[in-house]
Amino acid sequence: MPASDYVKDLRAKYGQGLIMFPTVSAVVLNDRGEVLLGQRSDNRQWALIAGMMDPGEQPAEAVVRETLEETNVQVKVERLAGVVLHEVVYGNGDHCQMVNTWFRCRAVGGEARVNDSESLEVGWFPLGELPPLTRFAHHRIATALDDGLPAWFARPGEALDDLMYRMPGA
């Protein structure tokens, strides 16, 4: 994944050590109830559309921007679905903790396609026919779809792995 100038500057100063970043991810639904996913170019895994926030950018603005940049799909944010801290170590050794805020979004325009170098493929998937996804992706989808839940968050002292909401059949 290409790093922004902001991230490059931080890495130049701090090397591969731990840096915390604000990130967003989108559970985008179309009128058929399908979920928008992208196959990542860095690890070839299918994932929700996601990315880092830019300095000064609000989370809802970032999720709209990231979705358009990566997939050419215009979205309307419907609701905040959750927020959590999770750890990532990239293939090059960069160590990050991501504060991820995820939203349920509705597609309102554009045609889904690979729109940048971060994805190999982009597509719409029925909920019952999702490609292999991480447990974390299933968690975000499930919490975004459940209108009966408030925005999800880890309670003080709780670990993400112990709390993830499970999709039926996941």
Rank of each mutant, 00 (worst) to 15 (best):
L149P: 01
L149R: 15
V114R: 04
F125E: 09
I141W: 04
D54Y: 11
A60Y: 06
A112E: 13
L160W: 05
G110R: 02
R40M: 12
I141A: 06
D146K: 09
P126Q: 11
D147T: 12
F136D: 08
C96D: 13
C96H: 14
M52N: 14
W152N: 07
A154H: 00
M53H: 00
A144D: 05
N115M: 07
L133C: 04
E78T: 08
V88H: 09
R40H: 05
L163Y: 00
P131S: 05
R104T: 04
S41L: 07
R40Q: 11
H139S: 09
A112N: 04
I141R: 01
E61Q: 14
M98C: 04
E111V: 15
L120W: 08
E121I: 01
Q74M: 10
E69L: 12
F153R: 13
L133W: 06
G93A: 00
A112P: 15
E78A: 10
W46C: 08
G110D: 01
G157R: 06
A112M: 02
T143W: 04
F136A: 14
N100F: 00
W152V: 03
G123K: 04
Q97D: 08
F103V: 03
N92Q: 11
Q58I: 00
L68V: 10
A81S: 15
G51I: 06
H86Q: 09
R135H: 10
V99A: 09
L133M: 08
A62Y: 00
R140D: 02
R166A: 15
Q45P: 00
G91M: 06
T67G: 10
D94F: 14
N115R: 07
H95Q: 09
E158L: 08
P55F: 07
G109Y: 09
V83Q: 12
G82W: 02
G109C: 10
A159S: 13
D147Y: 08
R104N: 00
V73R: 02
R106C: 03
W102H: 13
G51K: 03
G56V: 00
T143S: 12
K76W: 04
H86D: 12
G51R: 03
M164L: 15
N43R: 02
V77E: 03
P131M: 05
I141P: 03
P59Q: 10
E118P: 00
R65F: 03
G123Y: 04
V108A: 05
M52F: 13
V64Y: 00
V77I: 13
L80C: 05
G51T: 06
A112S: 09
Y90F: 11
G56L: 00
L48Q: 08
A50E: 14
N43W: 03
F153V: 11
Q58V: 02
Q74K: 12
P168Q: 10
G82T: 07
E158A: 15
A142I: 02
V77Y: 04
V77C: 07
N92R: 09
G109R: 08
A159G: 05
T143F: 04
A159N: 10
V83Y: 01
D147H: 11
D161V: 12
G82R: 04
Q97T: 12
F136Y: 12
T143C: 14
E78V: 13
V122D: 06
G56C: 01
A144F: 03
